[in-house]
Write a protein that binds this DNA or RNA. Structure first.
Lengths: 328, 328
DNA sequence: CTGTTAGCGCGTTCAT
DNA sequence: ATGAACGCGCTAACAG
């Protein structure tokens, strides 16, 4: 596809390229006469400015990178949607990358994105310290951490108050008479998994409740496998996210257990399907769309205002009580 | 973030920029001595070539655009994952855009993407004729249509044999004794919705079955609303996709109907949740991940081999029989 | 108001 | 084997 450039337009209109540039960007007054000529030429040639030349010139691409574990997980899909909606409206464009939580992949993607001159990065990675990323941030690379913070790196972030969510969940569960717990958590390295476990353990200790805890990973299969081989039933099974809860419920039902009569099961996230699951899932809602949107908003702010001090946004979770838990 | 350029490396190494370029791309022999100097300078400065300058020079960005209705729909999320996996491996990068099936938005996104010099476009839009897109294609713009073809535009595509899927579904349904049908279809403009309806109508005619048909849109809500106000129950409710089926099932169950005892319900797509839905959904599987991957593969082939003739890939659907339909 | 010109970072002749 | 110089398409600074 032969591209038509500003030069072609200038020639067609019989003016200089700077004049074309001026009418294009309204960056300086141009006589009506020439302006019209230029506009006609643009239409005639179906000219479209090259953003990449513009980027080279201005040192800004209007492109944001987003590294997430897996777009196939509705939790991330909804976050991405929130981010993209905001960015689109602000005339930014989103490069999406799936990392599968692989650290090597994360680094590689980061480098690719940087060499593509992204203006900023939305990052949801493993929680492990990433020296490459840390160094870039040190040098002024714009990053907003989303849902998952990395300890030891000082940067802006948008997260949910996981601790509070867990508190409210356990509060409800204990009030409704649950006394013995199993916590099937997600990936061990993950920031949110860690926080939730900390809070969980603390509450268990305070209320002197019996519990066991396991790290697995944030997937349906992990929950299903666990549910298949569980021996003794506790009063409640707390799951690291909704997908795990789905798996546990299905496995348990396959084995003839009734949810919530035999055991209560809870999730975390409240992805759209949880409302319609059978039984509908008691879970802690994370404002996914809003997380994505806020993070994008924060990132754009950082980019455009070049503010140096980092900012953290903590969103509120919300306990959603549905049919997968006994009411006492 | 001050970027370090090839010039800085050249200065640091005490050579010319062309030499640096040569060791970078291995495009011409360089003495071991200088090569080492350059490599050291690169490491020392943490130099990373600018893809955008490279793009400007070479007229190729290594970036692919993908316009879809909504990443939040698992059907698209899985397609996108397939595409991104392939592209990442081929060193392409994916710009994701949600259009919400809005034609104005589609045009705007298209223009944005073109001005960002994408090498090619994966397109899943409304099925309506789009003059802007048609014209770009005319001029040699690389596009692969995915899941949804536009009539009147000659371009490459990857679709699923919707007709066959519908045939097999109805065949199963009639064999198991269903005689009266309601088809709650998706968006009217959509290619796949049209094809499925055509086949549906044909089969109904051939087998002299009673039926009604409605276009709604491909969402849970559409199905739910429809289910809420349905009067007379047919033997089977055929839905345009799984989400619609979920909605119908939930609405009907809310009203006290039993699925499939009172009425069979089927979906289309087989998104990952359908297997675990209660009741598990009888549906027609579309190979989503594969669709995305094949389309990306085809697009890259078109880009790199500059082949002119268009190519169409038709994937096979698969009937998946589960618990939401009566067995006769 | 308008045109000329100098880069943005890179790959590629063309000399040497 | 190496370097100088040009140009990809564009904006901004400068000159008129």
């Amino acid at each position: 596809m032969k591209r038509v450039s500003i030069k072609d337009v200038a020639r067609e209109a019989g003016v200089s390229i700077s004049t074309v540039s001026r009418v294009l960007n309204n960056s300086a007054p141009v006589s009506d006469d020439l302006k019209e000529k230029v506009e006609n030429a643009i239409k005639k040639l179906d000219y479209m400015p090259s953003n990449i030349a513009k980027s080279l010139r201005k040192g800004k691409t209007g492109t944001i990178g987003f590294i997430i574990p897996d777009i196939t997980n509705p939790f991330f899909a909804n976050i991405v949607r929130g981010a993209e909606d905001y960015l689109r409206q602000r005339d930014y464009t989103l490069i999406l990358c799936n990392s599968d939580q692989d650290e090597k992949q994360e680094v590689k993607l980061l480098e690719t994105l940087i060499s593509k001159h992204i203006d900023g990065l939305l990052f949801t990675g493993t929680g492990n310290f990433n020296p490459v990323l840390a160094e870039k941030i040190e040098r002024g690379f714009n990053v907003v951490f989303l849902d998952r913070i990395i300890q030891g790196i000082s940067a802006s972030y948008v997260i949910v108050n996981n601790s509070k969510g867990m508190y409210e969940l356990l509060d409800y569960l204990t009030v409704t008479g649950h006394k013995e717990f199993v916590f099937i958590n997600g990936n061990k390295e993950t920031f949110s998994a860690k926080i939730r476990y900390e809070t969980f353990k603390k509450v268990m200790g305070e209320k002197k409740l019996k519990f066991t805890h396991f790290y697995t990973n944030f997937s349906y299969e992990a929950g299903y496998n666990f549910g298949k081989k569980m021996k003794k039933m506790p009063d409640a099974i707390v799951c690291g996210n909704d997908l795990i809860a789905y798996g546990v419920i299905d496995a348990l039902e396959d084995r003839g257990f009734k949810i919530p009569e035999d055991v209560s099961v809870t999730g975390f996230d409240d992805i759209p399907f949880s409302k319609h699951y059978k039984p509908p899932l008691t879970t802690v809602r994370q404002p996914m769309y809003e997380m994505g949107m806020k993070a994008a908003e924060l990132l754009v702010k950082i980019i455009e205002e070049k503010q140096i001090n980092t900012e953290g946004i903590i969103l509120e979770p919300q306990l959603v009580i549905r049919g997968s838990t006994r009411r006492g």
